[in-house]
Design a protein around this nucleic acid. Structure first.
Lengths: 338, 338
DNA sequence: TTGAAAGCGCTAACAC
DNA sequence: GTGTTAGCGCTTTCAA
């Protein structure tokens, strides 16, 4: 007879139905202590039959581990945080860990509220995510009784932090363009006060050397458009490739180039950054770009917080996960003559 | 002396420090029972001082209410679910309710896993969200011991369900175009097997009557582009307005019109659907479109699940929340002569 | 191998 | 008004 819905089954029900004590039932279900194989089977079968599910609250109260973690995010649900959150959740669900999602909207009061709620719920750890480096963290995370993992955000010096490897990602883009025979590569990117923008730009400058130029602006299509107009209006040699700091910028760049009757990729090759499919697949031609492997980032962060919460050691410091080049048609084929 | 980090403070610590019993402490902190105003103040001050925070697990175990809910989503973290989730979280955090985010990736095994985890955690309710009507629900949600609210998804007949009012939204778009003097309005939208697409199309057909034409395709920019090419290549009268089923489609439409040297909005006015800012603000001209008020949808769903979990009645059935017209420049001004 | 009993941190009767 | 006590559902000594 299944649970008829009147009340949740407890371990007491299991014990009674199996004709054992509750401690035996507990041992049988959890493979703890010494239990006769036969009784164990019987208890388990009964538990299954009556639809017993252990109460996670009671368990957590006793074990002081809730098997839940919190994700505190700054981001107004952008495309960065959420593929990542999916990665976190995906890797943790198989370990019986659930994820509280807390959007702070960059509001310190909200952040504090969420943080307290998480602590009250005895979460085993917190993953903090931001889209940009905020000079004043929204909330004091450093002296918490539980581990914290940072993603896309800088924690204290000795904390566990994950970032995409912006430097390697930018190099991937530049190298790809060079292999295709491009030599006058321009970089159009986002605001200078974004760490990611600065790192990518520096990597680009290091790779391209003399004559390289990085133009900082917004993370917008409009800025990409505007930058191209500026560059093509002024005298001097024109670039034969443009490496963009985001796919949105790349989209603006591509549109502006078309307006100028510059052919892509024949005259100018374009590379983006993000692999935001809804943009990158829809440009004409489709955009070659850099994927930050957000899901993998989420996996790693999830595993890290899991280990930390078990007291296992995790290497501190910033781990930068490699980006991946996604080749579409905006750079032309490596086999072209020029 | 603050909590020195060795151990979490319990109500027992508070009681001892305040020189009262734990029940008095509990009463003082929760404003239950009769408590002398002076003792109450003292207890509270002490609690504050030693950094006491009640253990939500213990509370939940006793009260059988965890003050947590689960959000089960089908969506691979699209732009629909997440602004909504932000709305849910935003409205619930002030009521002390936290949100578990569970992405099922449309995988029944994952959905089942998440559902069981939520039940084990004694969540007070579940919000189920999907981006499209799946004929076979990923998991049996109907006979749960806790309330379920559906958003963007159809539950059983008597369930509490929220949708944006697609019919009204479409009418808003068409009416706006008509007021601007447009008479040959075309509709380009997504796949016919999306309920939302069908409803919007029907609303459009009802409003436009004879000669109205709804073209079904994908939710993609490409389809918008292609549809426009088809329409402008064939003989007969051309539309003077296009109402698109999504902003992405609208973007493709706008690009195709520009390729054809059709002026927007002078020759053809364009309206989108979604108000997905990253698209709608970046089209040239910026897109007039329909906002589904996703955050408000989240608020309402959050409040509904809150009421239900308290046993308060909530009107069953489908509630459709009004959409909002967002006017940008793709339709021209109402004051134009023609 | 199994069971009785204590207790995780808290709230709610019910005495006092 | 305040304290004592039982108990939420579970795990875990420790005796039997």
């Amino acid at each position: 007879m299944k649970n008829t819905g009147d009340r949740r089954r407890t371990i007491y029900d299991v014990a009674k139905a199996a004709g054992v004590s509750i401690s035996t039932a507990s041992n049988a279900l959890n493979d703890t202590g010494r239990t006769n194989a036969e009784t164990r089977e019987r208890v388990r079968r009964v538990a299954e039959e009556i639809g017993f599910r252990p109460n996670a609250l009671a368990r957590g109260l006793l074990s002081k581990r809730s098997h839940a973690i919190g994700m505190l995010t700054n981001d107004t649900y952008g495309r960065l945080t959420l593929p990542m959150a999916a990665g976190v959740s995906e890797v943790l669900v198989d370990h019986g860990v659930s994820v509280f999602l807390c959007a702070t909207n960059n509001d310190p009061r909200l952040a504090q509220l969420h943080l307290e709620a998480l602590l009250d719920r005895q979460v085993d750890g917190i993953i903090f995510t931001a889209t940009r480096l905020d000079l004043t963290p929204p909330v004091q995370l450093s002296r918490l009784p539980i581990p914290v993992v940072y993603v896309f955000a800088e924690g204290p010096a000795d904390s566990v932090t994950f970032f995409p490897d912006d430097e390697q990602g930018a190099r991937l883009a530049v190298d790809h363009l060079k292999e295709l025979g491009r030599s006058r590569i321009l970089h159009i990117t986002g605001p200078r006060d974004y760490l990611a923008a600065r790192i990518r730009a520096q990597s680009y400058l290091d790779a391209c050397g003399d004559g390289a130029e990085a133009m900082f602006g917004d993370w917008s299509e409009e800025w990409g458009h505007e930058a191209v107009q500026t560059v093509f209006a002024r005298p001097g040699a024109k670039p034969d490739a443009i490496f963009c700091g985001s796919d949105e910028i790349a989209r603006g760049v591509i549109d502006a180039l078309r307006d100028l009757n510059v052919e892509i990729p024949t005259d100018v090759a374009v590379v983006g950054f993000d692999n935001w499919e809804v943009v990158a697949r829809q440009t004409r031609p489709p955009l070659t770009t850099i994927d930050m492997e957000l899901k993998e980032l989420g996996h790693r962060a999830g595993l890290a917080i899991l280990s930390l919460s078990k007291g296992e050691p995790v290497p501190a410091g910033i781990t930068r996960l490699p980006c991946r080049l996604v080749v579409r048609q905006s750079c032309g084929s490596p086999l072209r003559s020029e």
